[in-house]
Structure formats: structure tokens, C-alpha cells
């Protein structure tokens, strides 16, 4: 079954919390928390998140998509991944 946007948001949230915010309460992140522009994630973290997404969902992203435009919130990330999983 294909992952829904809600599943993706949950999975990515868990990943971010364990990888970049150990010890932080899950309440610290919601769908619209600004991840990159507020400094939660630095640019190297975005590389790791994209590696994680590629491995997890079997998708491929482009180098130029590593930007706040596509990855700044959990909602942005879920939208990007859903669009890429969708049948071509």
C-alpha cells in the first residue's frame, strides 16, 4: 500500500527527532515547523534526510531539490515525496 502524506510526515518526524534532536519532545515539531530557515536542520542534515527518503521510499530526488523551497516543513517534505512516489 502506498504511504499517505500523514504516514510520511510521521516517519520523517521520527527520523528527524532521533537523528538531529535527540532528547527533544515530539511536541517540538509540528507539520509547519520551519526546519531549515529556523536553524533546526543545517544544510548537511538536508543531505541526510534526502538519503533517508530515497532509501525508505525508493525514490530519486534532484540535487537542486535540497533547498528550503522543497524541504522546509514536514508538509513540504511529504508533498515532495508523494509527488515522486506517484505513478509516472
Amino acid at each position: 500500500m502506498q504511504a499517505t502524506e500523514a504516514d510520511i510526515k510521521e516517519t520523517v518526524k521520527d527520523y528527524i527527532l532521533s537523528e538531529f534532536l535527540p532528547g527533544e519532545s515530539p511536541d517540538a515539531l509540528d507539520d509547519s515547523t520551519l526546519l531549515i530557515t529556523s536553524g533546526v536542520l543545517d544544510s548537511i542534515a538536508t543531505v541526510k534526510i534526502v538519503s533517508f527518503l530515497e532509501e525508505k521510499y525508493g525514490i530519486e530526488l534532484e540535487a537542486h531539490e535540497l533547498s528550503p523551497e522543497y524541504l522546509n516543513t514536514l508538509s513540504d517534505i511529504a508533498r515532495l515525496v508523494t509527488a515522486r512516489i506517484a505513478p509516472k
Binding site: S43, I44, V47, K48, V50, S51, E54, E55, E60, E62, A63, H64, L66
Partner: peptide, 24 residues
């Protein structure tokens, strides 16, 4: 390190990580 790790996990993405590194 992040780019080499990604490339070692998936060798078909070597070019992608080279580009990512330069973009960063």
C-alpha cells in the same frame, strides 16, 4: 562524509552526491 556515505549505500547515485556536495 554524508555524501560518501550516501554514495557507498547506493552506487548508482555517485553523480548525484558529487553535485550535492558542490551545491552545498
Amino acid at each position: 562524509a554524508a555524501c560518501v556515505d550516501g554514495s557507498l549505500k547506493n552506487e548508482s547515485r555517485i553523480d548525484y552526491y558529487t553535485k550535492v556536495y558542490s551545491r552545498l
